[in-house]
């Protein structure tokens, strides 16, 4: 299996005036292969977002490195960005543009070939059932419609790696299910997906392997069955608590 993501002892330090030095990611290492959904599971403030931002080159590591699709996040950030689609639950849209205009913009920014861009946009409009509102300005769309546009925006350039940071946060059950189904389809299409969440049921449904993260450290990486065996617990919540107990503050 070809390794698409290899995080190698990633570290991110911040300096806070009040709290001094904060280590948001501490020696984070894991690998993710083609056609796999890797779940990053942890409570709020555990370091999930920081880790995903490091992988997507939004943040520069204070230590360690990572390679995505064979490109180094420090030395080849542009190539890394061209290989990924990034979506977080808080991602917004350009209100004054239509979904088609947004898809065209990001397709061009990601250097998707011009001669194929139009048909790719049409394909995504059909895939996400956006025909009725694809030429309506985003300021007039509902939350669910906007989320569809956001997902399409993240995948318009057909990247081999997808990074989703709590993508279902704030969504209703129907829209969230659409998104989770899409993530499953991405796996079937051979994409490598990294997916962060604190919702255990989502992780159980989707993830081939799970990395448990707390206070910036990866506590365990394994399949759900592997984690069950390791902790002797059946449910992911219990597994999580068990691993947390083993990592006291």
């Amino acid at each position: 299996m070809s390794v698409m993501i290899a995080a190698d002892r990633l570290v991110k330090r911040y300096h806070d005036k009040r709290r001094g030095e904060i280590i948001a990611a501490n020696q984070v290492s894991f690998e993710c292969v083609k056609g796999e959904i890797f779940g990053l599971l942890g409570p709020n403030g555990a370091g999930k977002t920081t880790t995903l931002r490091l992988l997507s080159t939004i943040l520069k590591p204070s230590g360690g490195t990572a390679t995505l699709n064979g490109y180094d996040v420090i030395r080849e950030p542009e190539r890394v960005r061209a290989s990924i689609g990034y979506l977080s639950g808080e991602t917004g849209l350009y209100d004054r543009l239509t979904p088609r205009e947004i898809l065209r913009y990001f397709g061009q920014l990601n250097r998707f070939p011009d001669d194929r861009l139009h048909s790719r946009i049409d394909e995504l409009v059909r895939l996400f059932d956006m025909e009725e509102f694809s030429d309506v300005r985003c300021e007039k769309l509902s939350t669910g419609m906007k989320q569809k546009v956001s997902i399409a925006r993240a995948v318009v350039h057909d990247p081999p790696i997808l990074i989703f940071d709590e993508p279902t946060s704030g969504l209703d059950i129907i829209v969230a299910d659409t998104l989770l189904t899409f993530i499953e389809e991405c796996r079937s299409a051979g994409k490598c997906v990294v997916f962060s969440t604190h919702i255990m049921s989502e992780a159980e449904r989707l993830c081939d392997r799970i990395g448990i993260i707390d206070r910036g450290e990866i506590l365990a990486v394994d399949t759900l069955d592997g984690l069950r065996e390791k902790t002797g617990e059946r449910f992911l919540e219990k597994i999580f608590r068990s691993l947390m107990r083993g990592n006291p503050a």
Binding site: R81, A82, G92, L109
Partner: peptide
């Protein structure tokens, strides 16, 4: 404000 900054920063443009 629009929360599009991450989208633009993760696009494949320098």
């Amino acid at each position: 404000e629009r929360k599009t900054v991450e989208s633009i920063l993760t696009a494949g443009a320098p």
